[in-house]
Design a protein around this nucleic acid. Structure first.
Length: 819
RNA sequence: GCCCGGGUGGUGGAAUGGCAGACACAAGGGACUUAAAAUCCCUUGGGGAGAAAUCCCCGUGCGGGUUCGACCCCCGCCCCGGGCACCA
């Protein structure tokens, strides 16, 4: 027989959820509506993909954090936009369709229903009237519309390029969706092997925005580590292109280098095996060896080619080039340590000042020539830092920065090269050979593509019974004969957009979700995105270079089209840390350490789950689940409950006789003021673990009182509301509070109530703690010094030695320096 | 290899130049109870002295430094987590 619940959360929680829904108290006022005159706050979660597995406690951590902030801001009197929706296109539903024949729409609807139920059971204060589903034609109509804007701007194009193809998923993937693993490159979703294949694909020209995506990171209040990840991904480098002429032919080979100052030390040149000039430049006697090498390189997996431990291989091609700076002739090699996909696919090798060139030179007995020495100290065999040039003609004696400038000027003046900025960022591979995604609003007339008219949007998916990918590599949409073919012979684009498309702009749709004539009205966008966009965005760090980079890119395009009012979408971003299983390992089905929110809510209630997840530790930190800790949260909430109710002999909850209508005593006033100050401060800083700790201190104080002033408990209810809203409502109602506490004003306190009459001053002698002393709060520095000098224990503290110096830290300590 | 985080009691964590360990978990003791659960109260970093109130020593990964004073700032290491990785 189950023991009695420590407090009746199972009855309380659904009742208040219903009351909130009926009162529509979390509705955000659109600009122009009553309520919109208040300051706005846009508090956003990364909306989930509604999986079959349901929500996990990690989702709930982020959602609880934003809900706390949203509720707090609402109580501060702000007009809060706190919406939720579904990023519902994606592979899992389609894989399920392939296996079972169930239409992805059906699976998706079921999963959304389950996610919504789980989220609502937590009592989150979302404005459900703004719910979004990216698979709804009313939504993806505008995703397609935005794609057309990109298309019109020339930012969407078709290219035949080596792309990552995943045979298991039957689709191509973006660079960002491929992860390097010990077994070679794998798909981010599903961990399937992927391979390079040349294919015709839609690309988005994100590289055109590389510099702005990099620069504008400085506008953002994001974790520094995340900004750094984006910077690395964009990978800006500044250097120069240097042109080498091939001896005995008219050919020129441009190379890209970030160290043009080392040009005097270049002793050979290396081409990537895919370099287009290889076959024409190879001398007849080297032909066989070079062709063999190129063939072998092509057969190597990417892993084999990038394996660091491996020796660098390569062969000379029998050509020489001229170093433009002094006319020296140096040999040309082909080696697969040079990447075809970066720079010009060719490098000038300076073994004395580049580790890779050095390793290769040592392997192949190539000349190593030093031209840079350190500012001081001995010169290592391979010195890659900045230093001072020597044996470098007109660069001699120059420091690296200056030498780079001088040689760049020289190259430009003499027509041997130019300054150049490069980025590692590649264009975004935007098409997928899948069914369950947005169809491209594009038709093909032979080899030429064109946009379909805006008025024909949305272009919906054709009904299919068979979702199996075709062995030919043609997308599933190819099976919809009637859909794809026009009477005039034109055919539809058969690829669909990747899952990221819908999430690239959903935060804008939330501003005006019902708009049928445009994606959002300018008024709504200006209102909700004012002040730099979304005010708080919370989600997992796994989206650092995927969603967050793509969305920033689209936003900038929209900004250039005057469709949004600020260049960045998300002003402040916080990553919630992963919640590990109780065994300190990542939660996973196979380890059997997954905690189900449904079960936790049934056993302990939603408020307890909210409080516990926030009390575990700092939001950003990785932390393990603890079922004992969970019970601690329940215990805390039931202590709050028992401030108001007492259990009778018959097991009923009756109003506690300790409650009184009296005014709170000084200590209680102080306890309330302190808790209010601390909780308010911590809410602003998103430090909820310490905020809850302050609430616990207050509850412990109130529990200890013989007579509990109702006003004090009502004050507590308001402080508690963002964290445990159901219980706060119940306590508030039982004590006769007005209306809903969820929309009550955030409590305030008087500064003077924080003051104690006296405080304990620690007394140190030569920085060692020696004693304590009670000092009245209003005591001046002189008063305190007098008190210390007059203290009977002073002589024993100092060993009778004279005090030479007194260092006072107001209200904290006094350090006496003797000897 | 490079770039970010981080290392504090038995555990999760507080304290970012001023009395280390708030708050909670666990543990131990007590009250209530026929008993248990629940609840309430007390103790709880380690070591030592004392009959006791108390008092002393040590202690924030390791080694140096700055400072009246360092978990906090600086230098050099070690370990853990995350990201990037032949990008010239």
């Amino acid at each position: 027989m189950p023991t009695r619940a420590p407090y009746p959360f199972a009855e309380i929680e659904p009742r208040w959820q219903k009351a909130w829904a009926e009162a529509r108290c979390f509705r955000a006022a659109q600009p122009g509506e009553p309520g919109s005159e208040r300051p706005k706050a846009y508090i956003l979660d990364m909306f989930p993909y509604p999986s079959a597995a349901g929500l996990h406690v990690g989702h709930l951590e982020g959602y609880t954090a934003t809900d706390i902030v949203a509720r707090y801001r609402r109580m501060l009197g702000q007009n809060v936009l706190h919406p939720m929706g579904w990023d519902a296109f994606g592979l899992p539903a389609e894989q399920h369709a392939v296996q079972t024949g169930t239409h992805p729409r059906v699976t998706t609807a079921t999963n959304i229903g389950n996610f919504r139920r789980q989220i609502q059971a937590m009592g989150f204060s979302y404005d459900w009237e703004r719910e979004i589903d990216t698979t709804d034609p009313k939504y993806f109509r505008w995703t397609q519309w935005i794609f057309l804007k990109l298309y019109e701007k020339g930012l969407a194009y078709v290219a035949e390029a080596p792309v990552w193809y995943c045979p298991a998923l039957g689709t191509v993937l973006a660079n960002e969706e491929v992860l390097p693993t010990d077994e070679g490159p794998r798909s981010e979703r599903g961990n399937h092997p992927v391979e390079r294949r040349p294919m015709r694909q839609w690309m988005l020209r994100i590289t055109a925005y590389a510099e702005r995506l990099l620069q504008d990171l400085d506008l953002l209040e994001w974790p520094e580590s995340l900004k750094e990840m984006q910077r690395n991904w964009i990978g800006k480098s500044e250097g120069a292109e240097v042109v080498f002429s091939v001896e005995g032919s008219g050919e020129k080979i441009p190379v890209y280098t970030t160290r043009p100052d080392t040009l005097f030390g270049a002793t050979y040149l290396v081409l990537a095996p895919e370099h287009p000039l290889i076959s024409s430049l190879t001398s007849p006697d080297r032909k066989a060896a070079v062709e063999k090498y190129v063939r072998e390189s092509a057969a190597k997996s990417d892993l084999e080619r990038t394996e660091l431990a491996k020796k660098k291989t390569g062969v000379p091609i029998g050509a020489t080039v001229v170093n433009p700076v002094h006319g020296e002739k140096i040999p040309v090699w082909v080696a697969d340590y040079v990447l075809a996909s970066y720079g010009t696919g060719a490098v000038m090798a300076v073994p004395a000042h580049d580790v890779r060139d050095f390793e290769f030179a040592r392997e192949n007995n190539l000349v190593v020539r030093k031209v840079i020495r350190p500012d001081s100290g001995p010169s290592p065999d391979c010195f890659t830092e900045d230093g001072i040039n020597f044996d470098s003609g007109f660069l001699d004696g120059l420091k690296t920065a200056k030498a780079k400038a001088v040689i760049s000027d020289w190259l430009e003046k003499n027509g041997h090269g130019r300054r150049q900025v490069r980025y590692k960022l590649r264009d975004w591979l935007f098409s997928r050979q899948r069914y369950w995604g947005e169809p491209f609003p594009i038709v093909w007339k032979g080899d030429r593509h064109e946009a379909i008219p805006e008025k024909d949007l949305p272009l919906t998916l054709p009904e299919l019974a068979d979702f199996q990918p075709m062995a030919s590599g043609e997308p599933p949409l190819g099976k919809a004969e009637a859909w794809k073919k026009f009477p005039d012979g034109r055919v539809r684009e058969l690829n669909t957009m990747p899952q990221w498309a819908g999430s690239c702009w959903y935060y804008l749709r939330f501003c005006d979700p019902g708009n049928d004539s445009r994606p959002w009205s300018p008024d709504a966008e200006r209102y909700w995105m004012a002040g730099g966009g979304v005010d708080l965005y919370v989600g997992g760090a796994e989206h650092a270079v995927l969603h967050l980079l793509y969305a920033r890119f689209w936003h900038k395009v929209l900004f250039d089209l005057n469709l949004v009012s600020h260049p960045e979408p998300f002003r402040r971003l916080v990553n919630q840390g992963i919640i590990l299983g109780e065994d300190n390992r990542k939660m996973s089905k196979s380890l059997g350490n997954v905690v189900s929110p449904d079960e936790v809510i049934r056993e302990h209630g939603a408020d307890a789950l909210r409080v516990f997840e926030m009390f575990l530790g700092p939001l950003e930190q990785m932390k393990p689940w603890s079922s004992k800790g969970m019970e601690g949260a329940v215990r805390f909430l039931s202590r709050v409950w028992r401030l108001v109710c007492e259990e009778t002999d018959s097991g009923e909850w009756a109003t506690s006789p300790a409650l009184a209508d009296t005014a709170p005593a000084t200590e209680t006033v102080r306890a309330l003021a302190k808790a209010t100050a601390k909780v308010t401060e911590d809410l602003e800083k998103i430090q909820f673990n310490t905020a809850i700790s302050a609430l616990m201190v207050l509850v412990n104080h109130l529990t200890g009182l013989e007579k509990r002033p109702k006003s004090a408990v009502l004050h507590l209810a308001r402080l508690l509301c963002p964290f445990a809203p159901h219980l706060a409502e119940e306590v508030h109602a039982r004590l006769g509070g007005n209306g809903l506490v969820s929309v009550a004003a955030w409590p305030t306190y008087r500064k003077e109530d924080l003051q104690e009459e006296a405080f304990e001053l620690a007394v140190q002698v030569n920085s060692k703690l020696r004693g304590r002393l009670t000092v009245p709060s209003q005591a001046t520095k002189e008063d305190v010094e007098r008190l210390v000098r007059a203290h009977p224990d002073l002589a024993s503290w100092t060993g009778g030695k004279p005090v030479q110096k007194m260092i006072l830290v107001p209200r904290r300590l006094m350090n006496l320096i003797v000897e």
